[in-house]
Design a protein around this nucleic acid. Structure first.
Lengths: 210, 210
DNA sequence: AAAAAATTTAAACATTTGATTAAATCGTTC
DNA sequence: GAACGATTTAATCAAATGTTTAAATTTTTT
C-alpha cells in the first residue's frame, strides 16, 4: 500500500521521513555541502531509498527548495498584502510579526534561501511569481495613496520593500556575527528579535513619514 | 627567485594568481561548491600548484576567508568608529557610504561572508575581535551620550547596529529576489543603491530620533 | 657553464559520493 | 496461502575530486 500522508498513525511514511530529513540537512548545510548519506542517516533509512523515491539528490533538493520558497515568500505575504480590512501600517505590523515568528522558529530558513538563490539566480519561476504578486497588490496601492496624500515620503517603493524586509530578515542572516556582540546565549538574542516585532513598524513609520 | 609581491612587472606571481582566482571562485560559489580545478583554470595554472603553494583547498580557503573578513569587517569600520572628529550622525554617513561603495564594487562579498560564516559559526577569532572593537568604540560612547541627552530613543545599541548594517547590506544579499521586482538590468538597481547612500543616514536619523 | 634549487607539468592515486543493481523482505490480492 | 507488486537492503559502480608523485623545465647560485 502506498500510504503517504493518509496514514493516521504517528509514524511518517518513508517518503515523508526523507523529505523531512532532506529539509533539515539542506537548510542547515545547503545543496553542495549536503551528502545524500547525511540525509539517509538523518532519516534513518537506506541510502538507496532516496533515489527510489526521488530519483536524484537534485530532484529532491528542487522539491525542498520549491516548498521552502513557497512558504517563505508566499505563505506569509499572500494573505496579508491584499487584505482590504487593514491599513498600510497594519500590513507592515502583520508582516513583521508573522516573519519574525517564522524566522525565530526556523532560523536557518533565511540564510538557506539567500545562499541557494545566490547559486542559482535564474528567474526561478518564483521570483517571477513574486513579481506578479507584489506590483499589483493592495499594499503598493496603499503606499501610493499615502504618498499622494503627502503622508509619507516620495521615495521608490522598492526602498520601502527593501527596508521592511531588511529590518526583519537581516538580524537572522547576520546572527553568527551579531550574536557575538552580545551575551553568547541565544535566549537574549531571541528576546531582542521579539522586541523588534513592536519596534520595526514604529521605525518604518518614522522613516517614511513625510 | 621567490619574487612574490616584490616583482615590479605587470605579471603576478603564481601564488598571487592562485589567490586572486581562489578569491573570485570562492566568493562566487562558496567553499563546498568550489572545485580546486575551477580555481586552477581561473588562474591558468596546473592543478598541482595549488597544493604546492597552499597545501590544501581548506588552507587556501582559510586564507581567503581571513582576508575577506578582515577587509569587510575591519578595513572599513576601524577607521571610522573611533574618529574623534566626527559626530555619531557623520559616522553613520561615512560607514554607509564606504560600505555601499565596497558592496557595489564587489556584490558577492556579502552573500559569501553570510553563507560561509553560517557553515562555520565557530567564534572564528574575528567575530571575537569585532566584539573587542565595537563595544569600546567612540561610536557607542556617542550613541550613549545622545541617549542620555534625550536626543535619540532609549533602545538597545544592538538594534542600532542591526538596523544600520541591515539597511546597508540587505539589498545586496537579497538582490537575486529584489532585482526581479524591477527592470531586470542591474544598472537601475545599482542606481538605487547609490541613492541609499544619502537616504540611509536620513532614515537612521528619523528612526532613532527621540 | 655546471650544479643546485625552485617551479611547473602530466599522470595517477585514493577517497568520496551520487547512483544503480539484484536479491531479500514485506504487504496486498486473488 | 500462493502469487504478485511494492518496498527495503547490502553491495557495488562509475564519476568526480582533492591530493600526491616523479619527471621535466626554469631559475638561481656558485
Amino acid at each position: 500500500m502506498n500510504n503517504k500522508e493518509t496514514d493516521k498513525g504517528l509514524e511518517l511514511s518513508t517518503e515523508q521521513k526523507i523529505k523531512a530529513a532532506a529539509r533539515k540537512v539542506f537548510h542547515k548545510k545547503g545543496f553542495a555541502a549536503t551528502r545524500t548519506r547525511d540525509i539517509a542517516e538523518e532519516a534513518g533509512i537506506n541510502q538507496a531509498l532516496l533515489n527510489y523515491y526521488f530519483k536524484s539528490k537534485q530532484k529532491l533538493f528542487d522539491i525542498i527548495m520549491m516548498e521552502t520558497l513557497h512558504e517563505f515568500l508566499f505563505g506569509i505575504v499572500a494573505g496579508i498584502v491584499n487584505d482590504p480590512e487593514t491599513s498600510l501600517e497594519e500590513k507592515v505590523t502583520a508582516i513583521t510579526s508573522a516573519y519574525i515568528d517564522k524566522l525565530t522558529g526556523e532560523p536557518q530558513i533565511a540564510p538557506f534561501v539567500i545562499s541557494e538563490l545566490r547559486m542559482n539566480p535564474d528567474t526561478s519561476s518564483f521570483t517571477q511569481t513574486l513579481k506578479s504578486v507584489l506590483p499589483d497588490s493592495l499594499l503598493i496601492k496603499q503606499f501610493r495613496q499615502e504618498t499622494e496624500a503627502g503622508r509619507i515620503q516620495r521615495v521608490d517603493f522598492l526602498h520601502f520593500i527593501i527596508n521592511v524586509a531588511g529590518l526583519i530578515v537581516f538580524p537572522f542572516i547576520g546572527a553568527p556575527i551579531l550574536k557575538n556582540l552580545r551575551g553568547k546565549d541565544g535566549d537574549e538574542y531571541t528576546e531582542l528579535m521579539l522586541e523588534r516585532k513592536k519596534l520595526i513598524p514604529l521605525w518604518i513609520n518614522a522613516m517614511f513619514k513625510a
